[in-house]
Design a protein around this nucleic acid. Structure first.
Lengths: 266, 266
DNA sequence: AACATTTTGTAGCCTGCGCTACAGAATTTT
DNA sequence: AAAATTCTGTAGCGCAGGCTACAAAATGTT
């Protein structure tokens, strides 16, 4: 019933593209994990070493001069799983770069509703909404695993960009991508049928955070039905039902606690 | 039934803040309309005059040197109401700055669903997704009224930012704001009850495109029930019903073809 | 291993809203 | 001003999915 043929076809193409992209992407991340020096036990608050920044692919084509400048301004901090970097409503005066780990951005509304807006991973920035007029963070950033970050104060960062315009260009690019992601999410939220919406949401998460495995693409961290209900704006019980249908139709499977999106859908 | 007391209170505060902000903002825009030279009948394709750019508040605190640089790179073009600047899927190689007028960004899906993602107005940029990996525009940009734009090619613009980092900083700021807007939209889409969702959506549109009038805030352009159904991801007929309820409860009124959000809700 | 906690699954009621159909109002076009 | 088109409003059927409640399974903790 739910999926038209045209739609299924579209999905299949999408998942295959996804595999290639995720693979390429992931190999870079592994390099990072191997070579980065500053992950191992350097106290928080110290300046970030240039080497450490260079290894983040975001800045990988920077000149050593730009790199040194960036490193001199950032301040390192380690957070444990479950820790909150900033709460929604806190005064916004810094943006963060994720060295390693993973962060969930969510928003809580005055009526108690909670929405997961995005997951960010190594190489991503967050808290960049501090540019713009707002003086408070509009979201809460909570770590999903042990996370190493570099924080940049707004004024420092602005100065940095003025002196090293290439850094600004990189940030513009990164923001562009986030705008694209959010745009996609916004479109997804408009899918009326939950089953399709859920599948799209999973597809997007997989595109960002998946690894390619033989059966398809595996999402790297466990997502509970409750997480998914926040992501899709739906009810937990309804998610359970929809997942069952998706599993029955072979579009997804589970490997332990994590989902695998099948790549071989006709 | 639908709105709790707490919620109503929140709305009231919001609308009042809105009025002040919109007023301040609008006076700037009017200045622009008065002083800008290049709106009046200069042929398309010519370089943009520095004066013309300076009048856009986005760049208002630029040095004349930065201004001249920006002007030399941009290329002016005029579009009529209903004209499309670019279609979803077109090769993306330029971003645009709106001198005056208004543009609707929307996305059409393979299953025929259509979603309105954003309205952009004078001083905003669009098509900035050309940074990032994508080589195609992910949305369609259609003019809602006669619109004057300045187009910038990607390579030109990158060069420009490298030479004039302040411009990059402005763009980062602008993007930050769009990210904030999209984030809000995404939260809004998660409101389960259509009546509340619709009201939030109207509130957001008003915040961006409203003028303050004695009764509250008026949205500057007509929105049909169909437009709203795209914005809320809902059905046209259901919108009609929800609007009726909102009108009955005094939260909104109509002035001719445009909506007014009441400011004096207790 | 025993216990506590979190996550997943099943069942059933009931409302909100998608959808079709048609009719009146308002704009635009001729 | 007449005709055509677009927009708004009303009515009713049907079902997807929200919600509560409870039970089984899995995970985490002594």
């Amino acid at each position: 019933m739910s999926f038209s043929n045209k739609f299924e076809c579209f999905i299949a193409i999408k998942v295959n593209k996804l595999c290639a992209k995720v693979e390429a992407h992931h190999s870079k991340l592994e390099d990072l994990a191997m070579t980065c020096l500053c992950i191992s036990g350097i106290p928080d608050g110290l300046a970030v070493s240039p080497k450490c920044i260079k290894d983040i692919w975001l800045f990988s084509d920077f000149s050593s001069e730009d790199m040194a400048a960036l490193a001199s301004v950032g301040s390192r901090k380690t957070y444990q799983e479950g820790e909150v970097v900033f709460h929604q409503g806190d005064a916004a005066d810094a943006m963060f770069l994720i060295k390693s780990g993973r962060i969930k951005l969510s928003k809580i509304f005055e009526d108690g509703r909670q929405v997961t807006l995005d997951y960010r991973k190594s190489g991503d920035t967050f808290g960049d909404n501090m540019f713009g007029e707002a003086i408070h963070y509009p979201v809460t950033a909570r770590c999903m695993e042990t996370t190493y970050t570099c924080g940049f104060k707004r004024s420092d960062f602005e100065q940095l960009v003025l002196e090293h315009p290439g850094i600004g260009l990189q940030v513009i690019q990164k923001q562009s991508e986030h705008i694209a992601t959010l745009t996609t999410r916004l479109g997804d939220m408009n899918i009326p049928c939950l089953e399709e919406r859920l599948y799209q949401v999973l597809l997007n998460v997989a595109r960002e955070h998946g690894v390619s495995v033989n059966r398809g693409v595996r999402i790297q961290f466990p997502l509970t039905h409750e997480d998914l209900s926040f992501l899709t704006g739906s009810h937990r019980v309804t998610i359970t039902k929809a997942l069952k249908k998706l599993r029955d139709s072979g579009k997804i499977t589970k490997d332990g606690r994590s989902f695998i999106l099948s790549k071989d859908i006709v």
